[in-house]
């Protein structure tokens, strides 16, 4: 059975911070804007204390929420 499209995500590699993940997953975007985009899609991480800390197990979305149209 083919999986339906799901919101894409990644997890951090050891030592990676927002900029590293943005470079890896949004390579075609301006680095600063890529970080901002990534953080805006992951407010559950960006807004927690200490702000923006990424843990090894965290799900990090690499795109905005899907619409009903997918």
């Amino acid at each position: 059975m083919e999986l339906s499209r799901a919101r894409s995500f990644t997890t951090a590699r050891p030592g990676e911070e927002w900029a590293d993940i943005a470079r890896r997953t949004l390579a075609d975007q301006d680095p600063g804007q890529a970080v901002e985009a990534l953080q805006s899609w992951n407010l559950h991480l960006f807004l927690r204390q200490p702000r923006g800390r990424i843990l090894g197990c965290d799900v990090i979305f690499t795109e905005p929420p899907l619409t009903d149209a997918g």
Binding site: T11, P14, G56, C57
Partner: peptide, 13 residues
């Protein structure tokens, strides 16, 4: 603070 398991990266899991 997060429990230890939350610091595990994908490779560890």
């Amino acid at each position: 603070q997060p429990v230890p398991s939350r610091y595990a990266h994908a490779e560890e899991i």
